[in-house]
Amino acid sequence: MPNDTIWSYASDLGPARDHDLTGYSVAASDGTIGHVDRQADHHGMRHLVVDTGVWVFGRSQLVPVGMVEGIDTGERKVTLACTRAEVKGAPRFRTDSETQDPVYLTSVGDYYRGLSGGAGPTC
């Protein structure tokens, strides 16, 4: 699983992918969804935990970094390759321990991989 592209930043993001993205705003293809609360890399499954604020009833959503299609360090903004509804439809993130649970992370990866019909990380 660690070599799966859904858990790796696209190489064309360059050095921006090495920045601490905590606090960056997060936009889906159809609008802003929140901000990066934290980023993690457990079991080789690199991901962002996005605080959606009131948009998804105060929940956070876990997003694999393979869904990131752009990082603007000047604007402090991350752009995702999917819609707001697709992020909202991902497996529900409930507790911080899930960021370390390979079963939960696998279900998230499978969901996002399925958005593109298995052809890659873009929706």
Rank of each mutant, 00 (worst) to 15 (best):
V26W: 12
V56I: 12
Q39P: 02
E86I: 03
Y111Q: 00
R38I: 02
W55Q: 15
D37M: 05
S107M: 07
M45D: 08
D30M: 11
V36N: 12
M45A: 13
V78G: 04
D110V: 11
D72N: 05
V65G: 05
H35R: 13
S97Y: 15
G34Q: 01
T79N: 00
Y112W: 11
Y112K: 02
Y112C: 00
L105F: 09
R76I: 03
G66F: 04
D72I: 06
I33S: 07
D30Q: 04
D110G: 10
R59I: 05
D51L: 01
R59Y: 09
E75H: 09
H47F: 13
T83R: 05
R84L: 08
D30R: 09
G34K: 01
M67P: 02
G89K: 09
E98G: 14
H35V: 05
V36W: 07
S29C: 12
D51C: 05
R92C: 02
L48F: 10
T32F: 09
G44A: 10
G53F: 04
G70Y: 06
R59H: 14
G74V: 08
D96E: 15
T95G: 12
P64D: 14
D101H: 08
G58K: 09
A85R: 04
L48H: 03
S60E: 11
H35E: 14
Q39N: 11
D110C: 08
L62H: 11
R76V: 05
T32H: 11
A81R: 05
Q61C: 13
D72G: 05
G70M: 06
S25Q: 10
G70L: 06
V87C: 03
M67H: 01
K88N: 07
G58H: 09
T83H: 04
W55K: 15
R92Q: 04
I71T: 00
E75K: 07
F57Q: 15
G53H: 00
V103E: 13
T32R: 10
R113V: 10
K88A: 02
R46Y: 14
A40S: 12
I33R: 00
A40L: 09
T32E: 14
P91K: 01
